[in-house]
Amino acid sequence: MPARISRQDVAHVARLALLDLDDDELDRATEQLGAVLDHVADIEALDLEGVPPTAHPLPLRNVFRADVVGLVLDRDEVLAAAPSAEDGRFRVPAVLGEEP
């Protein structure tokens, strides 16, 4: 059976997900993801022609919240849980990279 996911695909996906894989991990992931995708391919036996997708099991509509101020967190408590903070803000390394 042809591989369902290539080593390059796995590398691409790891990049998108911000995960580093070394060569061995890449090989193993390619094999393991391939095996799962092979199993998943059993879906292809089903006739899904004209079957609409269901993204969510609930038939709810129009669930709203009133525009009223509620719980606000204490900044000190929030920043105490942060890896690094300064001046009431979350500290990160100098940002290099493209803005969205």
Binding site: L18, A81, A82, P83, S84, F90, V92, P93, A94, V95, L96, G97
Partner: peptide, 13 residues
Amino acid sequence: VRFGMRVDAPTTL
């Protein structure tokens, strides 16, 4: 960035 562990590196990404 906001919670949990961090491994330091020169850039945010």
